[in-house]
């Protein structure tokens, strides 16, 4: 199956499996990308993992992207799946609003999601409901904000010796 076929096959199957939970499908370079609604995420991942033909048994990585301009859908969580035997690689995305940054945990399907989800909680404040041990991982426990969100500058705002107007955004 080449990538175009993979895209259309999964698109058709997801439409029949999760119905209105399916949002869109597109090709981004060498990856088919599927967007589903948050409530249908686990259903989608379970189908992709357990389907004998697709069998996405390996969670390569997951990460969050913050789009503050995208009102109502500020956060995107991206899951990158891999079927090593057939070398299929896809991405699944869910979008959510800042005031509703909850997403069901994928640790029930992929134990490796444990630390990845802790990392996303640590940096973006995404709450992975049902996670066995959701606490900060790389930052100190006392930190009271989520530093990778776009509203936090890379430098300490109180410093006057570092003027970034000409460099960086």
């Amino acid at each position: 199956m080449d990538q175009q076929q993979l895209l259309t096959t999964i698109q058709d199957q997801l439409k029949s499996k999760v119905g209105e939970g399916f949002v869109s499908a597109e090709q981004a370079f060498d990856f088919p990308v599927f967007t589903v609604k948050k409530d249908h995420l686990i259903e989608t991942l379970r189908f992709l993992k357990e389907d004998p033909e697709l069998n996405f048994h390996f969670l390569t990585t997951l990460c969050t992207i913050h789009f503050p301009e995208n009102k109502g859908q500020e956060f995107c969580v991206m899951y990158q799946l891999h079927n090593m035997m057939k070398n299929y690689r896809i991405r699944v995305k869910v979008f959510m609003a800042t005031n509703d940054a909850h997403v069901p945990t994928a640790t029930t399907l992929y134990p490796t999601a444990n630390w990845m989800e802790r990392q996303e909680y640590d940096f973006f404040g995404i709450i992975f409901t049902g996670h066995p041990n959701l606490k900060r991982i790389l930052n100190m426990d006392e930190m009271n904000y989520f530093p990778m969100r776009k509203e936090y500058a890379v430098e300490d705002g109180s410093r006057e010796d570092k003027d970034d107007t000409m460099f960086g955004r």
């Binding site: 370079f29 990856f31 992207i65």
Partner: peptide
Amino acid sequence: GEVYHSVEGGNGELGFYLVSDGGRTPYRLH
């Protein structure tokens, strides 16, 4: 665009997930 590329590092698959919005810096790099 958004692009993922991985190489076989010394201890495993080292991947770069890059989201670009056309600006001078990556919008997100994981």
